[in-house]
């Protein structure tokens, strides 16, 4: 199995510090969701975990070693990343896109193999895109397109998947579709999933572990029941709400009030 952790991570953009000596260990084989208000640093944290950003201080530890000191191709065999709103090259087909996920498994010595072919087919089947394999990505609906990008990450065949707001700009049905797919990848293939989500209620439904960030620090972490309470939500989002038990899934359900009308 593969573990990922942040150790005393400090970084930002230009001179502005976004993350301030943040340490975090994410549970293996679980779904972790990063939540927090806009600008709290959750996307930055995810990018740092994916080695897209270089820490000013501290480090990201992948399998016990500093991620920046490992060959990027070797890292890509352990960790895949779906950034916010990726744009597919014009004219690329779903199959070609999914094939890109096999890049870290290829080299001068190991060219395209049957194993690669099989992993691409599996990823297409897994994401129910087999019938769209030869379609151009730009002709797909938003939900299908997001599934195609997830299929690329699935073809990369990594024990760890990082996703930055995978449900943004999707309607509720497509959000559910994407989250169900990720949950099943976690359940059936034991993948560790770390993602940023904005919808607290969906986060509570799908997360094993929630990490709430505020001003570049971890404000609270734990199970949804531990983290999503009336008091905590008020601290994290400066928002009054009532948290009740979801009558159906028995996860916390947050009912927000307008900031002024707090009761």
């Amino acid at each position: 199995m593969t573990t990922i952790a942040a150790h005393e991570l400090t970084l930002g953009y230009q001179r502005r510090t976004i993350l301030d000596a943040l340490s975090l260990t994410l549970p293996e084989g679980r779904i972790s969701v990063l939540v927090g208000s806009n600008g709290c640093g959750k996307s930055t944290l995810l990018k740092a975990l994916a080695r897209l950003l270089l820490p000013w201080q501290g480090n990201v530890i992948l399998d016990g070693r500093d991620i920046q000191r490992q060959p990027t191709r070797a890292v890509a065999r352990l960790l895949s990343l779906l950034p916010q709103q990726p744009m597919a090259p014009e004219g690329i087909t779903v199959r070609q896109l999914v094939t890109l996920g096999r890049h870290p498994h290829q080299s001068w010595l190991a060219q395209w193999s049957e194993q690669d072919e099989r992993k691409v087919e599996q990823a297409l089947t897994r994401t129910e895109l087999s019938e769209f394999a030869e379609r151009r990505v730009e002709t797909l609906s938003g939900g299908q397109r997001q599934r195609a990008w997830i299929a690329m990450a699935v073809a990369q065949d990594t024990p760890l998947m990082l996703l930055d707001e995978p449900t943004s700009f999707l309607d509720l049905a497509h959000q559910m579709e994407v989250l169900e797919l990720l949950a099943s990848l976690n359940r059936e293939s034991g993948k560790t999933i770390v993602m940023v989500l904005h919808d607290l209620n969906l986060a509570c439904r799908y997360a094993d572990h929630i990490v709430a960030l505020r001003d570049g620090r971890i404000h609270a972490q734990g199970t949804p029941h531990e983290v999503i309470t009336r008091q905590r939500v008020k601290e994290i989002f400066q928002l009054d709400c009532q948290v009740i038990d979801d009558p159906y899934f028995h996860t916390p359900l947050c009912i927000p009030f307008a900031r002024r009308e707090g009761r």
Binding site: A50, T72, R73, A76, P83, P86, M87, L100, H103, P104
Partner: peptide, 21 residues
């Protein structure tokens, strides 16, 4: 020999880093 890497880069820098380019 660079064609494969360009294919990945065409999908964006973040994707390319994620795929080990």
């Amino acid at each position: 020999p660079l064609s494969g890497q360009w294919n990945v880069l065409a999908a964006g820098e973040s994707i390319a880093v994620g795929a080990g380019v």
